[in-house]
Design a protein around this nucleic acid. Sequence first.
DNA 1: TCAGGAATTCTCCAG
DNA 2: GAATTCCTGA
Length: 815
Amino acid sequence: MPSFDTTAGVRQDAGAPGTPDDAPARSPLLQHLNAEQLAAVTLPAGHALILAGAGSGKTRVLTTRIAWLLQTGQASPGGILAVTFTNKAAKEMVARLSAMLPINVRGMWIGTFHGLCNRLLRAHHKLAGLPATFQILDTQDQLAAVKRLCRQHNVDEDRFPPKQLVWFIASCKEEGMRPRDVPVRDQDMQKKVEIYQLYEEQCQREGVVDFGELMLRSYELLQGNDAVRAHYQRRFAHILVDEFQDTNRLQYAWLKQLAGDVVEGRLVTHGSVVAVGDDDQSIYAFRGARVGNMQDFVREFDVQRTIKLEENYRSYSNILDCANALISHNQGRLGKNLRTAQGPGEPVRVHEAPSDLAEAQWIVEEIRNLVRSGEAERREIAVLYRSNAQSRVIESQLFNAGVPYRVYGGLRFFERAEIKHALAYLRLLENPHDDTSFLRVVNFPPRGIGARTLEQLQDAARGAGCSLHDAVSTLTGRAGANLTAFVALIDVMREGAQGQNLRAIIGQMLEASGLVEHYRNDKEGADRLENLDELINAAESFVTQEGFGRDAVALPLDEQRGAPVLGQSPASQGLDASLPMAEPGTVIDTDTGETLSPLAAFLTHAALEAGDNQAQAGQDAVQLMTVHASKGLEFDCVFIGGLEEGLFPHENAMSDRAGLEEERRLMYVAITRARKRLYLSHSQTRLLHGQTRYNVRSRFFDELPEEALKWLTPRQPGFGSFGAGFSGGGAYGARASGGAGRSLGEVFASPPVPERKEGPGHGLRVGLQVFHNKFGEGKVLAIEGAGEDARAQVAFPRHGTKWLALAVAKLTVVE
DNA sequence: TCAGGAATTCTCCAG
DNA sequence: GAATTCCTGA
């Protein structure tokens, strides 16, 4: 193992293949693991890839491995870095670990990529070129900043929509590219890069970083500072990465920096990197995730050990058969098949509804039956959907039926307008040059500072190259007076905050800013006032809870020079007293040990963790969420609604194979959430954009094994009946199911009878064969609108797919 | 300056 | 159908 540096702090006497010599009997830690899991947990030092199928006990393997490393003395808490994508996953890992071992988990670096980057940047902010109090922009803030920039520089917002610019900047950073690194091919690109450059200057001036910058900046910190890099490389003898298939290029490069250096074209590493992932569950390509990182990892880290976890402990085999059959339609998989020792279980139930409303009613009825019969608790029932817009109709039906439910996603606590306003005031206390926050609240509540005044102020600030806060003194007149009063208000607040605890600071700010009074006078302000109260509570529990301390450790750089190197310290005692604890807050000055103020730490927390959107977590409620949000969760009963072409698979993703395959992986994730019972449903019509759309059943139905399904409603002609002429189909289109030739009467007579009192008027239905005078015969793919505005999408073998206005086009139904 | 109504846009998502 | 932006009149 030439790439393995023995100074890395891994005890070399650990006997291969993993089980320590002094443990002839299985440690209690390792009980109840199957052979695959045991092998993964007790992997000897060295890089490894664990391919963990859905429900194969991945989190358990990860946490047990960490516990095992600590217990056997192969690592000390300070030598471990475990990185995840979501706060949820990080929290769960910490919780499970502390349940397993009586250790101080604070010594370990367990967190999200962004959380750990934040920690690095706080500890080395000077080297990273950031102020100690740098603030983090969320997506909303980022969009606001870009819009402001566009207006200042007269960017044509029709040609360069701010949202697209945000996306462009984010994807550049995900690829590790600064403005100078972006290849410029045309004028548009030139302009975009210019804006990117301006945006960077603006952020630097204001002392703010966006999420992408958090990653990129800490990558550059490691890359550009040999001492810092060497320190962390030596410290982290064990790096564990969760959901590796979701890493983007920059995150992978960041991991490589922490793992070792490239010497003469080869990666020379100090510790072990264990990556856990599942290529079949990669559902974030649209935001830069690169499944290819798994192959790159194996090659560049010269990975000798790959372990597959294929035993599924979650679902019955009918459900797994569906998942396996579906995903087998994807190409280029690493190859993995889930198996279970459990029996077939119940068949997967399929339901067709005439409308989205009827679909929701059916789902709610089934849920009530399940609960009434005692077959499932409400909290063990989940309704999954492809897009958030679908939740409303289900929510309203649940509400009408009086069924408690909980929605994940949507607007979360720290994203609410009133909370953002309050946070903006708090941020100005920390950093008066944060122009984004300044603009957010300078006139909220209204204090007579309008667009005109702010334009002047922004001009002045640009002229003087200073922040809005500093430019206020240059303005005169009545507008100037209002602004001066605002700045004075902030300054008074800041002084009042001296020596106060967080609760008092926020309380005073809420009063002094006028926010409380403003919402008190607002008819619909009651909820907002409640949320502001909740903000105080959140701050309170942040200070008292362990969550505050967990981010608290950063090693002074000097630490590395004294022996022993941390990773090598005998860790049999489990506790690591040698680690300097720096509470409260993260260390921001590695020389003096200065820490972040509680307020600054709380603001960071608010930016990195948007919080839940609903408080009643403990209640026994039905769970509603998007398929994306369901990843990593499991339920006894799962409903997947809206399985229609254009919705799932989503129309934005249907045009190319890569997009379609990601949709299929998404469906795979959805199916594998279910333990006992799975319901799939689709609807003939759906209200979207306030318009009725006529949809075909999703092609995914045709990719499931018929013997595992139970059709609750008669099987209608679906996607598979189109035959030729549909793009992106390949194998799918060929599977005709014999429904295409039905007559109108037959189609309409078959149940379920649509609830519409009158038909759509044109007599067309999706799936019918029609004739057009010019284009010839074709198949109806979709119908939108009604009456005069009705349009149909028709696939013609010769002329491609066209949208036709039914009031104009003469279409006849081919019998 | 600002409230309220009209027009427009847009859906996948963690940090 | 909702959130956001645009627009107009007071």
